[in-house]
Nucleic acid binder design. Sequence first.
DNA 1: TTGAAAGCGCTAACAC
DNA 2: GTGTTAGCGCTTTCAA
Lengths: 368, 368
Amino acid sequence: MTKKATVYDVAERAGVSIATVSRVLRQPDAVRPVTRERVLDSVAALGYVPSGSARGLAERRTGVLGLYFPGFDASEDAPVLDVLAGDQAEVPPFTVEQASADAGAPHPTMLFLDEVLRGAELEAWKQGFVLMIGVGRGDPARETVRDIAGRVDGLMVLAQSVPDDVLARLAQRIPVVVLSGPARGDSYDHVTVSNAEAMSELTRLVLAQADPGGLAFLAGPEDSPDGAQRWEGFAAAIAEAGIAADDVTVLRGDFTRASGRRAAEELIARGAPAALVAANDQMALGAIDAFRSAGIRVPDDVRVTGFDGIEAAALSRPTLTTVRQPMIDLGRAAVQLLARRLEQPDAEPMTVRLPLQILVRESSQRPA
Amino acid sequence: MTKKATVYDVAERAGVSIATVSRVLRQPDAVRPVTRERVLDSVAALGYVPSGSARGLAERRTGVLGLYFPGFDASEDAPVLDVLAGDQAEVPPFTVEQASADAGAPHPTMLFLDEVLRGAELEAWKQGFVLMIGVGRGDPARETVRDIAGRVDGLMVLAQSVPDDVLARLAQRIPVVVLSGPARGDSYDHVTVSNAEAMSELTRLVLAQADPGGLAFLAGPEDSPDGAQRWEGFAAAIAEAGIAADDVTVLRGDFTRASGRRAAEELIARGAPAALVAANDQMALGAIDAFRSAGIRVPDDVRVTGFDGIEAAALSRPTLTTVRQPMIDLGRAAVQLLARRLEQPDAEPMTVRLPLQILVRESSQRPA
DNA sequence: TTGAAAGCGCTAACAC
DNA sequence: GTGTTAGCGCTTTCAA
C-alpha cells in the first residue's frame, strides 16, 4: 500500500490542473481526447481511486442508500472467534458431527431480511446507488442508525426497528422509507403488504375445504403488529362466512415451531379440528409435527395453513399452504420510493402496498 | 426536511465555536459540563447529524468496510417493478397460486453469501465499523468495485469476483481480504476452508460404510475451483484406501439438481453403485430423487453424500450427510483480518483457514 | 478547452 | 476549556 494518490498527484503527473482530472472522470467529453488520454494514463499508473468522502462532501450527496435492520440473531453473544490469536497450524481442517436436522438454522426474520436486502441491492444498482447496511444491536440502536444516517442520501428502516423520536429526527435530515409494518398516518414514505386481506382470502379457501364446525386459529404473540393484522383478516373472513366467534378455537403461540407443537397438542386434547389456520409457517409446521405424532393425518384429517412462505414450508411433507411475502419487491420498492423523494423532496408522503402471494399446496387440500 | 444543520449552525445556536461542538461529539470529557449540555441541546433542537463525508475527509478514514460479491441471481433481467407508475388502487392485495414446491428459490450461492454477510456485519459492529455492500452485475464489475473502494477503509471480496488487475490496483489503495477460494501465494490476506481435507475425511466415512467396489463420484463443472478441490480430496482418499481410480465411476455435473438427477439415471443404467459422493448438495439431492424414482433406496441400497450444508439438505428425506461451510465465521474472520491490517499495514499477508463441519446424517449410514 | 479558486462540513493542532 | 485556523480531496463556477 503506497501512499494514496490524489487528484493532485494525477494532475501533476499528467501536467494538467486538478480541474481537468476531475472533468476527465465526470464529463469526459468536455476534455480534448489527447489530454484525456494523458490523464487516464496517469490515473492508471498511479492506481488512483477517487475518495468517496471528498466527493460526497463536494457534491453534497453520497450516492449511498442506507438500510437499517434490527438484529434478530442474538448476535451480541455470538461465540468468540479470534483468528488472530493462537497458531493457525493448530486449527483442525474439519470436525465431524452426528447432526440433527436443524442445527444452527438462522432466525426466520433474518431470511426475510436477506431477501429484502437482495431486492434493495438490485434496485439500488439499477438506480446507480450503493447500499450501506446497519444492524441494530443492544441498546444504543440510536447510535448505529445515526451513524449510518450521516453517511447516506436516504434511509430505509424496518418498521419498529427505530424509536419514533429518533426516526423523526433523522427524517429531518434525509428521506426515510419505512418497510413493512402498519402504514401509520405519519409523514414517511411506506411500503407494506396487505396482511389482513390475504389472510381473509386464505381463510376463505380453507373454509371451502373444511368443516366449519372444527376451525381453529393459532395466533402470534400479542405485541406483533403482523400477528394482529393476520388475526383481523381471519376474524373478518369467519364473520363474513357467518361463523360465530365462539365456534372457533383460538390459541396463542409465539411464532416458534415449539409453540405450534404445543398448541396442536392442546387441540388434540380438546378433539382435533377440521382445519387449523396458523399466523406463521413455523407454528404451522410445529403443529403438523404434533398431529403426525398423534397419528392424525394432514391434510386428510386436519387441513393446516401457515403464513410467510419460508423455505421449510416448501420442503415439508405435506408441503405447506402459505402466504409468501414479496420480499424482493419490498426492497426494490423501498429504493424506488427513496429515489423518488430524492428527486422530489416535497412530494406527498406515499404508501405503496405490495400484493402477497397465496401459495396453495398440499396441507390445505382435502384429498379428492 | 429542513435544510441540513451543520456544525456551524449548532455552534451558533449554542453560542460556542465549531471546535467545541466537534469536541462535545468526539471527546465529551474535554468540555465543561455546562457547555456540553448547551451544545447537546442545540444538537437536539436542530436535529443535527454529522456528515459522514466531511468526517471521513477530515479524519482520513471512513469507518466503513466494503464487501463485494458477484451477482448470482440473474438479477439484471429481473422483472420490471415500478411502484411509482400506475395507480396504487389498482394493485390487488394478493394473488392465489397452486404452487409447486420450489418456485423462486434463491440461488444457493446467494444463501451462502447471506450468511457470510451476516458474520461480517456482526464482527464489523463489534469492531466499530459499518458495512457497505456491492454486488457485481454485468460487465463493468470494475466500476462498482472501484466505486466502493473509494468509500471504505478496507475491502472484502469473494475469490474470483474481481479481475486480478483490478484487485491489484485497489489493494494499492486500501487493504483487501480475499474470501474463500484457493489461497494463492499472492500478497492479500485470505480466509479459506479446507475443502480437500474435509472431502477426504467424508470419503473415508463413506468407505467405512460402503462396498468399495461400487463407488461413484459426481464432480462439479470443470471451471469451479471448489469443485476441483473437492475432487482432489476424494481422489486422495481413495488412493489412500488402495482403490484403483478405474474402480470408481466419475461423472460430471454442473452443480444443479437436474444434473444430479441425470447423473443418477446414468449410474442406474450402468448398475447402481453402493455409494455416491457428490461435489455439492444440489446434485446429491437430485440424485436421491432419481434413485427414489427408480425404486432404489437411500441409504439402504445406495449411500449418498453432498457438500455445502444448504438448508434443503437438512430437510430432505433421508436427511443428507454433508459438509457445512463456516459461513458466519468466514465473514467474521475477514473483518478481523481487515481490522488487523488497518492497524498494522505492513504485517505479512496472512491466510486464515477455517475448519469445515462434516454433518453425518441419514443418507450416508447403512441401516444397522 | 483548460486553469484558478472558492467552498463542501468536519477534525485537530495550536494558541489563548 | 475554548477559539482560530489550516487542511482533508474533490467539484464547480468563473475567467482566460
